[in-house]
């Protein structure tokens, strides 16, 4: 997630651990997606019953949220001592 150098005494996850973690995350996502084909669904909306629906929803929602938030920031962001 970050490009900075790992530090020795800090608590920051070092690069190798980070890469391992990301690989694990990818694996989990893949397993969950595949497993989703074999789970019996009874959602309240039709789209919920598609395999991987929640995964895609999560991706999409996070993308939209981040974009809208960045947009919002253009309007509301001020200096930290704006009120002082």
């Amino acid at each position: 997630m970050s490009q900075e150098k790992p530090s020795v005494s800090g608590g920051q996850a070092d690069g190798a651990a980070m890469r391992r973690g990301l690989r694990l995350l990818g694996l989990i996502c893949a397993v969950l997606f595949v497993a989703d084909f074999f789970v019996e669904k009874h959602g309240h909306h039709a789209w919920e019953n598609l395999p991987g629906a929640y995964g895609f929803f999560g991706l999409l929602a996070c993308g939209v949220l981040a974009l809208v938030a960045s947009l919002l920031r253009k309007f509301v962001e001020r200096d930290e001592d704006y009120y002082d």
Partner: peptide, 12 residues
């Protein structure tokens, strides 16, 4: 399964 997916993919 749904919830795990939501969380995992959000992290991703």
């Amino acid at each position: 399964a749904d919830q795990l997916q939501l969380i995992a993919f959000s992290v991703a």
